[in-house]
């Protein structure tokens, strides 16, 4: 079957077992049978409240968590079934941006080391000078200075760190980027910059983006399609306009109704 979809997730379950051995076991169904797809170059948002399992979806797709059952087909290959060694090569195409820019960069490594890592792991460069050239390029593309590579993460603000984290992802030119609450930890004025940057890079590179967020305003701004998650399930999927302008599911309606609106009418 030739299709336009880059990633297909079919009936994915990720369950966690708490306790064990002597304790009574408790199974948490963080992701409980979800199905969706992302087309090439498309932005799909996964939106929901805390604990709905949206982050677990992202972590399962990158195999940071083990799926309990289901299929994840990326470009015709089953991601969950392939051996770890094969998946390590595929990681180049499935990249992830994390929420907290203070936690996602190793505090002990200079930026140049952090950004070299993906290049050397995937053998994309032959020498250190090659790597530096690429790093300088990517830093400038995310709006940083090329000399910033010689500094440590703690010398940067939250917004700058998130740009660096984005650079680490984009340096591999992946085909799918999973952004897990990538702008939630940032101040409003900085959030807008980073959001614009992600949108710009997505359009330039034509990569697909799975944008995981709880913030509906941000989601509307960036997505083509939206999937609404509630308690481990997707309750509604649709184009941005279907979800925001003609929501069907009562939970989607509740979410949209809960957003405190700024009286923009008066303002603009």
């Amino acid at each position: 079957m030739i299709s336009n979809s880059l990633l297909e997730v079919r009936n994915l379950h990720t369950h966690f077992t708490l306790g064990g051995w002597l304790d009574t076991k408790q199974v948490i169904r963080a992701v409980n049978g979800i199905t969706f797809h992302i087309n090439r170059g498309e932005v799909l948002s996964l939106v929901g409240e805390s604990g709905c399992g949206k982050s677990t979806v992202g972590r399962t797709l990158t195999r940071l968590e083990n799926a309990t059952s289901g299929q994840v087909i990326f470009d015709g290959k089953d991601v969950l079934q392939m051996p770890a060694s094969e998946f390590r090569i595929l990681r180049r195409d499935i990249q992830m941006i994390f929420q907290d820019p203070y936690a996602s960069l190793n505090p002990r490594l200079k930026i140049v080391t952090t950004l070299s890592e993906p290049l050397f792991c995937h053998k994309l460069v032959r020498s250190r000078s090659d790597a530096r050239e690429k790093i300088a390029d990517i830093l400038e593309r995310v709006g940083m200075d090329r000399n910033d590579m010689h500094r440590y993460p703690h010398e940067f603000s939250g917004g700058q760190r998130q740009r660096i984290a984005i650079a680490r992802v984009m340096i591999l030119a992946p085909r799918l980027v999973i952004a897990d609450e990538a702008v939630s930890a940032l101040d409003v004025s900085i959030q807008a910059q980073v959001l614009n940057l992600i949108k710009k890079l997505q359009q330039e590179n034509g990569m697909a983006l799975l944008f995981i967020s709880h913030d509906l305003g941000v989601v509307r701004h960036i997505s083509d399609r939206v999937a609404v998650m509630y308690q481990g399930n997707i309750v509604e999927t649709g184009t941005k306009h279907q979800i925001f302008d003609e929501p069907n599911h009562s939970y989607t309606k509740l979410l949209l109704g809960s957003i405190p609106r700024i009286p923009m009418g008066i303002y603009s």
């Binding site: 917004g159 807008a192 614009n196 923009m264």
Partner: peptide, 19 residues
Amino acid sequence: SIPVIDRDIEWLKAIPGRV
């Protein structure tokens, strides 16, 4: 800077620089 949910904005007018 705030992306609103009532209408589409192509690019947000972010405040440049940092806090």
